[in-house]
Computed example of a mutant assay.
Amino acid sequence: MIKPTYKVAYLLMLLLLNSCIWGTVDDDNNPPFEVQQQYEAVTISRTEFENSTELLPAEPILETGKIYVKDDYLFINQPNKGFHIFDNSNPSNPFNMSYLKVLGSSDLSVKNNILYINNATDLIAVKPDFTNNTIEITKRIVNTFPELASPNNCCYNNTADNEVIINWTLIE
């Protein structure tokens, strides 16, 4: 019969061996730490921000986000910059007709021909008139959304009350 003190010693040895077997990490595939990319906030004054939304001539698409379809129109988001607007009345040949500059944007919804867009921290309602190539911001609800987070969610920016984060840039 095994003495009780030896039972405790055997149990401790089994636990230690178990942690050695199941807790191993392959150091070749998992470096001890990863260098996290650093980002810097791009900010503008609230006054400039609130006057920055505009309908511009068509631009080439540089980066894409979400895509929306409403009637004969396609809205393709360029993250944190705006929306490329296509006439999709001929789906085999969509026509890039204009660009809606909306800083800090990533999402859009359409109801009764009004575009509801996140404009960084604000929610705006935009009434487009594509025949006359104009828009009207019919409503702005300030600070509806939280500040734009950095792409890796690591950075916090102490933004002044009169400033808005519209994007983040990678620090090289």
Rank of each mutant, 00 (worst) to 15 (best):
E50Y: 02
S52G: 01
F49Y: 01
I44A: 01
P60K: 03
F49M: 01
L62W: 08
A58P: 14
F33H: 14
V35I: 14
K70Y: 15
E54Y: 06
F75N: 03
N77P: 00
A41E: 01
Q78R: 09
Q78W: 07
E63H: 06
Q36A: 09
I67M: 12
Q38E: 15
A58S: 13
E59L: 10
E54D: 08
R46D: 02
D71K: 08
L55F: 00
E63L: 14
V69D: 05
F33I: 08
T43K: 05
K70N: 12
L62N: 15
T47Q: 12
F33R: 13
I61F: 04
L55P: 01
N77Q: 04
Y68S: 06
A58Y: 13
E34H: 13
L55W: 00
G65Q: 06
E40W: 13
P60R: 03
Q37K: 15
V42G: 00
I44C: 03
T43V: 10
Y39M: 07
S52E: 01
F33Q: 13
T53G: 00
E54I: 10
I61P: 15
T43R: 04
A58G: 11
Y68M: 09
Y73D: 05
D71I: 15
I61Y: 03
N51S: 14
Y68H: 06
Y73H: 08
Q37D: 11
K66H: 12
P57H: 01
E34F: 13
Y73N: 07
T47D: 12
E59G: 07
E50D: 05
T64L: 07
K70C: 12
S52W: 00
Q36F: 09
L62A: 15
L56I: 11
V69H: 12
A41I: 04
Y73K: 07
S45E: 13
E40S: 09
Y68V: 13
L74W: 13
L74V: 06
F75E: 03
E63R: 06
R46V: 05
Q38L: 12
E40A: 09
L55V: 02
Q37G: 10
E48S: 08
Q78Y: 08
I67G: 06
I67W: 06
D72C: 13
E59A: 07
Q36D: 11
Q36T: 10
N77A: 11
E34P: 13
Y73G: 06
G65W: 04
T43S: 04
T64M: 09
T47H: 10
F33T: 13
G65V: 06
Y68W: 11
I76G: 04
V42R: 00
I61S: 06
I61N: 03
K66R: 07
L62G: 15
L74C: 05
Y73T: 10
N51A: 14
L74Y: 11
E63C: 15
L62I: 11
E34R: 14
T47F: 12
D72W: 03
D72Y: 05
Y39R: 07
R46S: 01
I44E: 02
A41T: 02
F75D: 02
E59C: 07
Q37V: 10
E63G: 14
D72E: 06
S52L: 01
N77G: 08
A41Y: 04
P60S: 06
Q36S: 11
Q36N: 11
N77K: 01
E34S: 12
A58M: 12
Q78I: 05
N77W: 00
D72S: 12
E59T: 10
F75M: 08
Q38H: 14
E63I: 10
E40V: 11
Y39I: 05
L74D: 02
T47R: 09
A41R: 02
T47Y: 13
I44R: 01
I44H: 00
